[in-house]
């Protein structure tokens, strides 16, 4: 039971962060594609902007790893 709860906790940590990242990337991505359509030379910077919220899910992964490693023994 305890292992199950730890697993759910870790999953929530990653899952919620992934949803937040997805929401942010959806908006940035739509705007970036619009910008690229107007100015193709902005492709590199657009990728950069789309990539920025990914840090959220990586932090979620870090928290999940800590939950598993510290609580899971």
């Amino acid at each position: 039971m305890e292992v199950g709860l730890i697993a759910i906790g870790a999953a929530i940590a990653v899952g919620l962060c992934a949803i937040a990242t997805a929401l942010a990337q959806a908006r940035i991505g739509a705007a970036a594609v619009g910008a690229i359509a107007e100015k193709p030379e902005l492709t590199g910077r657009a990728i950069l902007l789309v990539a920025i919220p990914e840090t959220l899910v990586i932090l979620g992964f870090a928290v999940a790893a800590m939950i598993i490693l510290i609580l899971g023994g």
């Binding site: 990914e54 840090t55 990586i58 932090l59 992964f61 870090a62 790893a65």
Partner: peptide, 12 residues
């Protein structure tokens, strides 16, 4: 610090 933590994606 966030920049350094971002490299955790290599493991993920």
């Amino acid at each position: 610090v966030g920049n350094v933590l971002s490299y955790l994606r290599l493991a993920a």
